[in-house]
């Protein structure tokens, strides 16, 4: 059976590492966004650190370590996101996340697939995925900009920190709402082929594209 490339290697590794970065961001960020509920997480950051600094407590030492990890992960993400963004912008013409077919039709097809459990008339991405993609792009940009302001506080006024903290929180809650849905949908049996494409092969079987992504198939045919 012929396979059609869905994600290239760079997209798949970037997705994988964004997942790792997110893991670090959440673990180290939760004690800052909701200190009273998630302080216990700090204990795990503190334990190895006590060897260097025995006079700290799990709160002071753990929080400092968490903040350092948070910033290092941020730095890592920025360094990694720049070449990824440049390459994606270069290939903008082949993006499949532009709107197609209108909102009402998009939602109708989404319901057909996820409530009716029938193959729907999707492009490469359905309307939910397109929404997720744009939200992730915009929110990542917000997080990077506000994160840099909070990381280099001394260069800004306290009022700027307050706005940065506000938008950093807005971004966090956007991710907190959309990521569980994204992860659930990725693990759902309806999307086995999508999971396989992202984490294993990078490809869809041709038959699957014909039946489940007819709009995209049409585009691919016209291109050939």
């Amino acid at each position: 059976m012929q396979e059609i490339q869905t994600f290239n290697r760079f997209q798949r590794t970037f997705h994988m590492h964004y997942l790792h970065f997110m893991f670090v961001f959440f673990l180290t960020g939760l004690p800052q966004v909701a200190p009273h509920a998630f302080r216990w997480l700090l204990y795990f950051f503190w334990i190895p650190f006590t060897w260097f600094s025995p006079e700290t407590t799990y709160l002071s030492g753990g929080m400092k370590v968490a903040m350092v990890f948070h910033r290092l992960a941020g730095l890592g993400l920025i360094v990694y996101a720049i070449p990824f963004a440049l390459r994606e912008i270069k290939n903008m013409a082949s993006w499949q996340i532009w709107p197609e077919g209108g909102m009402a039709e998009g939602i109708r097809e989404l319901l057909k697939h996820y409530i009716g459990f029938k193959p729907a008339n999707f492009g490469k991405y359905n309307i939910g995925q397109k929404f997720l993609a744009w939200t992730t792009i915009v929110t990542t940009a917000i997080m990077i900009v506000t994160g840099c302001i909070l990381m280099f506080k001394d260069a800004f006024e306290p009022n700027t920190w307050r706005w940065a903290r506000f938008f950093h929180d807005v971004g966090f809650f956007i991710f907190l709402v959309i990521l569980p849905i994204h992860i659930y949908m990725a693990l759902h049996p309806l999307n086995r082929k999508g999971y396989r494409a992202m984490f294993e092969t990078g490809t869809f079987p041709e038959e699957y594209v014909k039946t489940h992504h007819p709009k995209w198939w049409g585009k691919l045919q016209r291109k050939l």
């Binding site: 009022n159 506000f166 809650f173 959309i178 569980p180």
Partner: peptide, 21 residues
């Protein structure tokens, strides 16, 4: 102070939306 009240609000609304999702 707008930002302080807004941050409290977004933290409440955010957890509610997370619950809904």
């Amino acid at each position: 102070r707008g930002q302080i009240e807004a941050l409290d609000a977004v933290r409440t609304i955010g957890w509610v939306l997370f619950g809904a999702s």
